Amino acid sequence: MVALVTPMHADGSVDWNALERLINWHIESGTDGIVSVGTTGESATLGFNEHDELIGRTVEIVDNRVPVIAGTGGNATDEAIRLTRQAKRVGADACLLVTPYYNKPTQEGLYRHFHTIAMAVDIPQVLYNVPSRTGVDMLPETVARLAEIDNVVALKEAKGSLDRIHELIKTLGEDVAIFSGDDGTAMETMLVGGKGNISVTANVAPQKMHEMCQAAVAGERERAEALDAELAKLNSALFLEPNPVAVKWALAELGYMEPGIRLPMTPLAEHFHDTVRDALADFGLSPAGA
């Protein structure tokens, strides 16, 4: 599944035409699901109305061809409930809820936060743990408590630790599906029992990422490793600066959208341009007009 960027014009306004082009390209390329307005989609800088409209338009464009997972997390529980209710209303298939950022809640606070949202909105919910960005790490035992709730169906784990993946799979069994949220360790996550990857790299390499995930989930290690090796340089280059800076620059370089991004994020630093271009070229992707 792609953690889809939110295409923007140079002034930071949402580029609705580019959004439609990107979604159709992803579906044609084999992407298995669209994650709309997750953190890669700059959810933290979008207003409520923009957030709602992006999810609604994404659902309309996708038109039931693949599942749409709406990013509806927040660092205030009431805010996350409001976003999740609206996502359900416009037809999202599930919601992705990041751990509250900056607040640094305790494990009990995390449990109550997600429990409250799950009880308030009857829609499948995917929890999202990304401690490097939020400042809080949701532990496997907390996920296990939440797994007892019927509509908590999955976890996107982006700690980037295979030890954590092993611990989660051992602790949770089949109670909750584990998805990687870290492209660099996604292949191994799936080979040991993870169910897929919510990917940043898929924004520029959807077909190859789909093929790698397909092989890894099927346990075809040799094929998965070969495909993952082709993606490795992109996986690294797209995180030279905090996501989604590099991936939005790459998509603009390839001609898929304008280079718009919202403050406090800034465009990719010029001294990284050649590194990202080289990674794109090695993968066989050329700048627009080249």
Rank of each mutant, 00 (worst) to 15 (best):
128 Y>F: 15
7 P>W: 00
165 I>G: 09
166 H>S: 15
282 D>C: 08
15 D>W: 03
214 Q>W: 05
147 A>F: 01
191 L>K: 03
145 R>M: 07
196 G>T: 00
37 V>L: 01
157 E>W: 01
49 N>Q: 14
155 L>E: 08
138 M>F: 05
15 D>V: 00
158 A>P: 11
147 A>M: 01
159 K>L: 10
134 T>L: 06
17 N>F: 08
11 D>P: 05
178 I>Q: 04
233 K>M: 12
43 S>E: 04
261 I>Y: 07
130 V>D: 02
12 G>Y: 07
82 R>H: 12
190 M>R: 04
161 S>H: 11
55 I>K: 03
8 M>F: 08
279 A>Y: 02
259 P>M: 02
97 L>Y: 00
238 L>Y: 08
200 V>G: 10
41 G>T: 09
1 M>R: 10
177 A>V: 05
135 G>H: 01
28 E>F: 08
112 R>C: 09
185 T>C: 11
261 I>L: 04
27 I>M: 12
4 L>T: 13
93 D>G: 15
226 A>F: 06
140 P>L: 02
163 D>E: 14
15 D>P: 07
203 N>K: 04
18 A>H: 05
103 N>D: 01
124 P>R: 01
226 A>E: 15
63 D>V: 05
135 G>A: 02
137 D>R: 03
79 E>Y: 14
75 N>L: 07
213 C>K: 00
66 V>T: 13
280 L>M: 13
260 G>N: 00
58 T>V: 06
232 A>H: 12
195 K>L: 10
281 A>E: 14
287 P>N: 05
55 I>P: 11
232 A>R: 13
51 H>G: 12
187 M>E: 09
8 M>D: 02
215 A>L: 03
28 E>V: 12
248 K>D: 09
17 N>Y: 09
19 L>D: 04
72 T>W: 02
198 I>G: 09
168 L>C: 13
60 E>H: 09
93 D>Q: 11
194 G>A: 02
139 L>S: 09
30 G>P: 14
127 L>I: 08
88 K>G: 14
36 S>M: 15
57 R>G: 06
51 H>C: 08
81 I>F: 05
134 T>F: 06
60 E>D: 13
201 T>R: 05
217 V>Y: 00
286 S>W: 11
110 L>R: 00
242 P>Y: 01
261 I>P: 12
267 P>I: 00
140 P>T: 10
